[in-house]
Design a protein around this nucleic acid. Structure first.
Lengths: 168, 168
DNA sequence: GTCATAATACAAACTCTTTGCAATAAGGTA
DNA sequence: TACCTTATTGCAAAGAGTTTGTATTATGAC
């Protein structure tokens, strides 16, 4: 298994969380947890399974989904709906948000400017006054990433085939 | 067809937009546009089809998707990814955001506090400095709507079956 | 070691969305 | 108005992502 001390710390932390709720400590849970921490990056369920495949070759996708959902409840990961494509699970739990390239779908983190978190808290407070009890606020920026911006000119010049769905 | 003058205005506006881009003015486009305006509310593709069914009983879902995607490009609707479930298309194009109930999935609008839009613009500017050219910022609040909050206590007391996916 | 059952794997279903292709109809031209 | 080109549409089917049903495995209590 090749455990580093950081791994063992992460294991202990997860074990404590699971035990506290009367849940079992299993290999999928430990290994997925380790991989999430190793990556430190929002991943899709499929990516998580690939990351885990070396340690647990036979792990099933439903188990990955169940585990990630459990982690979300435990507060270990945040679910990120980033535009098109699969849902992401983000092991970063500190205040940050995401940008999504509408061309290639790439998702990146960005740290909110100092005023943003304050404004979001105000928004949550405002919503609470209308009856909605918000417990999280997510910001998603949509646009073009650096790479896709480079090829933007070509795309916008394409004669539009206007087929099924305009273009894209 | 029973056109009101508001309908005709909306028709004329859409017609101008389409013509300006060399696109054709078709019944699905006109009718979906009218229904979106009549509802004034983010709808799913399926909801849009239902709303349009009286005027165009045979309309297909692929056409609805294509039309909504076209409208997005024309700036008539905004695509809203609101957590679980289908994508919504929002005919409101002014600055506002959305709250999603994580129990029942209900999506509601909320108007950003005065400082929020400013903070989002600052965030976009910050992202641009890292190479990401943002052209839109969406805020999604997650929490419990008024109705679901009323039954919250019962839910949290449920003995957790801990089956497939913890609970929910 | 034994036992109850939580957690898993596997297969299949399900929802939402997109694609391929033949038929239709918008709108320019004669 | 009739004709012609091709953008749009409908239909059927495929595809991506996620969830559910059920038999099996293995955790953790005794």
């Amino acid at each position: 298994m090749n455990s580093s001390s950081a791994d063992r710390d992460a294991d202990a932390e997860l074990t404590a969380l699971l035990r506290a709720r009367g849940l079992r400590v299993t290999s999928p849970r430990l290994v997925i947890h380790r991989q999430l921490r190793a990556r430190g990056r929002h991943v899709t369920a499929e990516e998580a399974r690939e990351a885990v495949a070396r340690d647990l070759p036979g792990i099933s996708l439903p188990t990955v989904y169940a585990t990630l959902e459990l982690f979300e409840e435990l507060g270990i990961v945040r679910r990120v709906h980033a535009g098109r494509g699969a849902v992401r699970y983000d092991p970063r739990t500190d205040a940050h948000h995401h940008s999504v390239c509408r061309r290639c779908g790439r998702v990146e983190d960005f740290d909110g400017a100092e005023g943003l978190e304050r404004a979001l808290l105000a928004a949550e407070a405002g919503a609470r006054r209308t009856g909605f009890a918000a417990d999280a606020a997510a910001v998603v920026l949509t646009g073009l990433c650096e790479d896709c911006r480079a090829t933007e000119r070509e795309w916008s010049r394409r004669p539009r085939p206007a087929g099924r769905a305009a273009d894209r």
